[in-house]
Simulated assay, not measured.
Amino acid sequence: MNIRSMAMVGSLAAALVVGGSAAAGAASATAARNADRPDRCGRPTAVSVFHDGGVPLLDWRENLEFDGRGTLWVSHVTKNRVEGYAPDGTLKASFPVPGPGGIRRGPDGMMYVNFGVNPLERDGGVMRFDPAAAEPRAEKVFGGTPRINGLAIDSAGNFYLSRELATGILKVRPDGSRDEEWTRKADVFGSNGLEIVGDQLYASVLVNGSSPVVRVPLADPARHTTVTRLSHTVLDGKFLDDLTAFGGDLVVAAFRSGELIKVDPVTGRSCVLVSGLRMPTSVRVPRAFGDHDGRRELFVTEASGRVVTVTLG
């Protein structure tokens, strides 16, 4: 989720009602069977602060990604910058990006970040930077795609961009051209977080009262299906944000409810890993990041400005 969503509460509430009603008719039988409220996972968890926040919402950290070289990169949407952190929490790099959102490592080892997520920016698209540079600088890969949020990149270098208040997950080729046919077939409304697992793209949906998680086959996006629904009613809507693959499951950040929810992508069964977070916006598994254990730890950014670690027992 980005700050634009908070500025459009009225529109969002209306879209939740409409989206929830429309999507209900298209739910798969599996999703219908697994539409129960998530239960607790039963695993002990500990939450610790990796980097403290400032004024909630005004210090909004939107997304994060590990480069596999010892740095955690964080998009700070309200300060218009990308920050790089060492495993001990030390800030080691910071450089300007206008309204940064989803951030991911590409198959070429470069880091890619959406720009223009901040509603004050007129343009939107993807920028690239070298995480190994002494002083990283972001350069534009392509623009012309305003009102985007989440980002995923496949092994061929294609970009997938989510849009909270539009239909269709955008696919952009490595040369910056749009795959309009793919986008038209991936007609999911209100997508937010994106994660590729094998040949499947998983999307969390923000603008839908039933809080669905959707599976989109990369080779056949028209065959997208609902994996699960994590809310019963609009009033229970969780405002799903980013998600990540973790130990064969998916872990989804629920912005409104302050939870991390684990979802089995095969059965749709779900449970709450941890609650009490402060508007979580993104969740990732640490990779080659000091002594942090990717089998037991998750890193989370929040709209509170914090970056926290969740350690599972």
Results as ranks from 00 to 15, higher is better:
Ile3Leu: 08
Arg4Glu: 14
Val9Met: 15
Gly10Pro: 05
Gly10Arg: 06
Ser11Pro: 02
Val17Thr: 09
Gly20Thr: 09
Gly20Tyr: 09
Ser21Ala: 15
Gly25Asp: 15
Ser28Phe: 09
Ala32Asp: 12
Ala32Asn: 07
Asn34Arg: 12
Ala35Val: 09
Ala35Thr: 09
Arg37Glu: 15
Cys41Phe: 04
Val49Leu: 04
Phe50Ser: 06
Phe50His: 10
Asp52Leu: 07
Pro56Val: 14
Leu58Thr: 12
Leu58His: 06
Asp59Thr: 08
Glu62Trp: 11
Leu64Lys: 14
Asp67Gln: 13
Thr71Gln: 08
Trp73Asn: 01
Val74Ser: 11
Ser75Ala: 09
His76Tyr: 15
Thr78Met: 13
Lys79Cys: 06
Lys79Thr: 02
Gly84Phe: 05
Asp88Arg: 04
Leu91Arg: 02
Ala93Tyr: 06
Pro100Lys: 03
Gly101Ser: 01
Asp108Gly: 13
Gly109Asp: 02
Met110Lys: 10
Met111Ser: 08
Val117Lys: 10
Leu120Met: 14
Arg122Trp: 00
Gly124Phe: 04
Met127Glu: 00
Ala133Cys: 05
Glu135Ala: 05
Glu135Thr: 02
Ala138Ile: 01
Val141Pro: 10
Phe142Arg: 07
Phe142Thr: 00
Gly143Cys: 11
Pro146Trp: 05
Pro146Ser: 03
Pro146Lys: 02
Ala152Ser: 07
Ala152Gln: 05
Asn158Phe: 10
Phe159Met: 11
Leu161Cys: 07
Leu161Arg: 06
Glu164Asn: 12
Ala166Val: 02
Gly168Lys: 01
Lys171Asn: 03
Lys171Met: 15
Pro174Thr: 00
Asp175Ser: 04
Ser177Asp: 13
Lys185Asp: 01
Asp187Arg: 09
Asp187Val: 04
Asn192Gln: 07
Glu195Asp: 03
Gly198Pro: 01
Tyr202Gln: 03
Val207Phe: 06
Ser211Gly: 04
Arg215His: 13
Asp220Gln: 15
Ala222Phe: 11
Thr225Val: 05
Arg229Gln: 13
Leu235Thr: 08
Leu235Tyr: 09
Asp242Ser: 15
Leu243Val: 00
Phe246His: 15
Leu250Pro: 10
Ala253His: 15
Phe255His: 14
Arg256Ile: 04
Ser257Arg: 12
Gly258Phe: 14
Gly258Ser: 13
Glu259Leu: 09
Leu260Thr: 06
Pro265Met: 14
Thr267Cys: 14
Gly268Ser: 11
Cys271Ile: 05
Cys271Leu: 10
Gly276Ile: 07
Pro280Asp: 08
Thr281Gln: 06
Thr281Tyr: 11
Thr281Trp: 14
Arg284Asn: 10
Val285Cys: 12
Arg287Leu: 03
Ala288Cys: 12
His292Asn: 13
Asp293Trp: 01
Glu297Pro: 04
Leu298His: 08
Val300His: 10
Ser304Met: 03
Gly305Gln: 07
Gly305Met: 11
Val310His: 02
Val310Arg: 02
Leu312Ala: 15
Leu312Tyr: 13
